[in-house]
Design a protein around this nucleic acid. Structure first.
Lengths: 208, 208
DNA sequence: ACAAGAGTGGACTATAGAGTCCAGTAAGAT
DNA sequence: ATCTTACTGGACTCTATAGTCCACTCTTGT
């Protein structure tokens, strides 16, 4: 049985797929800590224990690798968020979601920020393909929030005329802005405060 | 407190100061569009019409130049914001501030994001000195917002027990997150929506 | 006026890092 | 069984870019 490569028409063996995955995973981890520009291909090779020809066998160049990293990180984040948000249908559940994100970010004192947000800021204006992929990932993430808010609305925790899409955008904005401020301050507080204000607004809408 | 080398004991003639300023201004403009990593020293030399020895006469290296860029961009943004926020004392004034930022960002369809936020994301985890400078700049910016909110509170547009510092953090978070989402989507809408939600919260606090 | 040091020009070096090549091995198709 | 192609290893090239050097010219203080 052959696994077809999603990129081009080439075949992809199980071994090849494993190598490719190791490369992307190593690149993603390095780029989260060192940044995209601060991570060299040699860094990636050393971390993944793979040779140069293997990297160039699987990717056209650094840009293609970065795009694969965007895909992987997007998948990781969305998996995590689907898990965290998939069954949330109360304001209390949303507050627990906030707590988990804040607690997790506090482990690093805010450093490195949001895996997706950092990538977005690094590549948005340099690689249009990657930018579009990231825009889609943000949209998907936001839709998870929209779904939660819709459930809140259906349960009467939000008024029937609440614009769940706009509220989800506001929530995502507060989250991303909070990540950035925390990353700059090396202190998770502004992220917590920023999210709290967004959640407080939901409460005020719910009460009104 | 500045992180530039303008006060390292060496004298600085008027001519030298002009050259130095030209270098930093060119670097700031290039880095806003191409990113920090995507801008080479040769780019900066070409854009400023200056020779390599001049650059190295005024800066120890690229890191020092980036720190000077942080200072300059910070000054520009804070000057603009002092001007925009200095006399605002009503919610309506704050909404006009929002309109101006959104209108300005719409000119580029969100591209490049916030000059300060983009620098922060690029530099925060690579250069601790620059990170601290950026953290201070964000704090100053936020204080301008705190002052506005304090005036709103004094005028009765916010309740006496409103936590103006926390509200300012939320406002700044919404702004920065909005910038990032707009930059990724190449569409100013999420920035407008994000800010609108923060302002709507202020209104709800004011009404409550 | 003139010494000292700030400022300038641009050729030069060093090297990190992207990207190439080719010889060889594993693995799926028939 | 063997043919084809995916896959691997690592030495190699090439170039972009950071950083050096030195000879020269302004500016300023005394």
């Amino acid at each position: 049985m052959t696994i077809s490569d999603s990129q081009d028409g080439r075949r992809l063996t199980a071994r090849g797929a494993r190598t490719r995955a190791r490369i992307v995973a190593a690149a993603a981890d390095l780029m989260y800590v060192q940044g995209v520009g601060g991570t060299t291909l040699d860094d990636v090779l050393a971390a993944s224990g793979v040779s140069k020809s293997q990297l160039y066998h699987h990717f056209e160049g650094k840009d293609a690798l970065v795009r694969a990293v965007v895909d992987l990180v997007g998948e990781r984040v969305l998996d995590r968020e689907r898990d965290a948000l998939g069954r949330v249908s109360t304001l209390r559940g949303l507050r627990r979601w906030r707590d988990a994100l804040v607690r997790n970010n506090a482990l690093r004192h805010g450093a490195y920020g949001c895996a997706l947000g950092a990538l977005a800021s690094a590549v948005a204006d340099q690689d249009d393909l990657a930018r579009k992929a990231l825009a889609n990932l943000f949209t998907e993430w936001q839709e998870l929030l929209t779904d939660v808010l819709r459930r809140l609305r259906d349960a009467g925790e939000l008024p029937p005329d609440a614009s769940v899409e706009r509220l989800a955008t506001g929530l995502m904005g507060a989250l991303q802005g909070g990540y950035l401020l925390a990353q700059t301050a090396h202190d998770v507080t502004p992220m917590a405060t920023s999210l709290d204000m967004a959640l407080a607004y939901l409460e005020s809408v719910s009460a009104g």
